[in-house]
């Protein structure tokens, strides 16, 4: 292992990392918003709305993100929608991750025993209070672990944007590997950087989960 080959390329890699962070933040915010919208629409009283959400979800769950990106970047211009590289990337991440996050929310809501809600209703609690005081606190605790996994997935999937020439971390990494032919030095460095950032994020989310679950007895 010869780490010195890496040194001249570190600024290049760090520039890419900043783009990755920026795209991750945009993509996460937009996906969570999209997921809440989808989860809400999935509980809609209108059959057609539920149907559309379901078909969309099933297609996305089967579609490789690369294919979606390709459609948005290369095919959509023919239909009159022409987005720059970053916008096309963020839109792809949002369309792709919202249904997964919506499924996680659906799963958490579904795991609350319906008896609880019935009981709350029987003692005369209004609907909004039930949502706020019974459902939300429990769902929050249950939804954080899978959501954390999905956010980490999203952060790592930003690498796919390198395919449409967004010069993020993975793009720069491949560039440096091809210049130096030192794949193990470069990828070890990259893996450690990824790991440090994502571990910090994970620790943060564990803390949030602990706080959300503090009303439950410990096990």
């Amino acid at each position: 292992m010869d780490w010195t080959v890496l040194l001249p390329h570190i600024p290049r890699l760090m520039d890419g990392l900043l783009i990755t962070l920026w795209v991750t933040v945009l993509g996460t915010l937009a996906s969570v918003a999209g997921a809440l919208l989808l989860a809400g629409a999935a509980a809609s009283p209108f059959g057609p709305v539920r149907g559309i959400v379901r078909v969309y979800t099933e297609i996305i769950l089967g579609l490789p993100i690369l294919v979606l990106l390709y459609l948005i970047y290369f095919v959509a211009p023919d239909l009159g929608l022409r987005l720059d590289e970053i916008s096309a990337g963020v839109l792809t991440l949002t369309l792709y991750y919202s249904p997964y996050m919506a499924e996680a929310i659906r799963g958490a809501v579904g795991s609350i025993p319906p008896g609880q809600i019935d009981a709350a209703r029987m003692v005369g609690m209004p609907g909004l209070s039930i949502a706020r005081r019974i459902v939300a606190p429990q769902v929050l605790g249950l939804v954080i672990p899978p959501l954390t996994g999905l956010m980490i997935g999203l952060a790592k999937d930003t690498a796919i944007l390198s395919v449409i020439s967004v010069q993020e971390f993975a793009y720069r990494t491949k560039q440096v590997v091809s210049r130096t032919y030192a794949p193990f030095e470069v990828w070890t460095f990259v893996a450690v950087v990824y790991w440090m950032l994502l571990s910090a994020f994970e620790t943060l989310m564990r803390g949030a989960e602990g706080r959300a679950l503090r009303f439950r007895e410990s096990r």
Partner: peptide, 13 residues
């Protein structure tokens, strides 16, 4: 984990 990563990469090289 850095140790593991370095070890694995070292093995590979």
């Amino acid at each position: 984990s850095s140790l593991a990563a370095v070890l694995a990469a070292g093995l590979a090289t």
